[in-house]
Amino acid sequence: MRAPSHLTLVPQPKPGPDEADVEIWYPELVPKATVALPRTALEHLDALYRVARSLTGRDDDAEDLVQETYARAISGWAQFTAGTNLRAWLFRILRNAFIDNYRRSRTNPVQVGFDEEFATSLTSDSREPVRSDVELERLRSVVTADIEEALASLSVDARAIILLDLEGFTETELADSLGCAVGTVKSRLARARAVLRERLRDYGS
């Protein structure tokens, strides 16, 4: 028996011997959390705005991206699975909205994935290695504008994983937000930070 498309159905324990050949489905006992995106979604507004601001580089574009994110979350609330992570879900929407919409409006398409990031970084790996004390000194002298510029030069996903980590995301949340396997999060984050450090070589004293 197929489940009607508007209901989430789960199989129930085996029935009695007389009905052993019949598989019976019942409506799932765990309901969808609420009928609409809850107000608790507002708790993530500042973090969404910070990440949007870093992705777009502009206040007004960041506002639009956040508006877009909530609009998609409201209209797509039925697809949210109760008991999963709302914060990660919202950030995944934001990332997708940025990739879908924002880059269309730009002359130069943005880099999206880690693969592009690390392919690009391979060419710059051939630069002279920097002594660690020199790099430390440079990192100590970089200012806000330097960091923001260096971040802006990274791919969307490399930027996002660094920023979401700063927001206190767990590895599971990072994986959910970026659509990658939990087991790859640690290495992706480490590599994204390594590329950011490399880009910051050009700044500081």
Binding site: L45, D46, L48, Y49, R50, R53, D59, E63, V66, L139, R140, V142, V143, T144, I147, E148, I162, L166
Partner: peptide, 12 residues
């Protein structure tokens, strides 16, 4: 550097 020097923006 990321913790201390990135602005802690709030949504308008």
């Amino acid at each position: 550097a990321l913790r201390d020097r990135l602005p802690k923006r709030r949504a308008p």
